[in-house]
């Protein structure tokens, strides 16, 4: 399942090529279904989520910019977002972004957008620099779509401690990736 081949199929899907869509589905659906099953932990729901995922892929294929993202990562992000949205709708969790925190403000540093480039360090190496339980929390949050509350229960720490763990871990990872 070469990236190049998936990119080419996405290009054809953007041109409404049904054969390419079927071919893309054949090649990528086991991975994307695996994502939905792992996050939703329910086959029926995962099947519905997978439908949503491919409907989105059909309509959004033209937004895939080869070279800017790896095609499999792009597809996996659509699947993860769909599964996590479905999970959060089924089982709401507390809001974590502080109300007083103004999300509408533009970011301060306009140079930052120029910094998107493939980072030299792999996330795995940076995760190893974190304490083992924190790295595990980051990994499980990502893979299973766990909420802060669920993570706090699994790791037997107070909710606020878990929030601090993950937020500090994210900053450490960011710093490590940029090093």
């Amino acid at each position: 399942m070469a990236d190049k081949e998936i990119s080419a199929l996405l290009g054809r899907v953007a041109l409404a090529d049904r054969d390419a869509f079927a071919s893309l589905y054949r090649q990528t659906s086991p991975k994307l279904f695996g994502i939905c099953v792992r996050i939703l932990k329910d086959r029926g729901e995962a099947e519905e989520a997978l439908q949503e995922v491919y409907v989105k892929i059909w309509y959004r294929a033209d937004r895939f910019l080869a070279g800017e993202a790896a095609p499999m990562s792009w597809l996996a992000a659509i699947a993860r977002n769909q599964a996590i949205d479905r999970l959060r709708a089924r089982k709401p969790v507390a809001n974590a972004i502080d109300e007083a925190y103004d999300l509408a403000d533009p970011a301060l540093d306009p140079e930052r957008s120029a910094m998107i480039r493939s980072e030299g360090r792999r996330i795995e190496a940076c995760l190893e620099e974190l304490e083992a339980d924190r790295a595990e929390a980051v990994r499980r949050a990502y893979v299973e779509g766990l909420s802060y509350q669920e993570l706090a229960e699994i790791f037997a720490v107070p909710l606020n401690t878990m929030r601090t763990w993950l937020r500090r871990s994210l900053l450490k990872l960011r710093e490590c990736m940029e090093r």
Binding site: S29, K31, R122
Partner: peptide, 16 residues
């Protein structure tokens, strides 16, 4: 998204 994408390896494929 691109930084964390390598964790996607943890997802086992499941045939729908």
């Amino acid at each position: 998204q691109s930084n964390l994408a390598s964790i996607d390896l943890a997802y086992e494929p499941v045939a729908p």
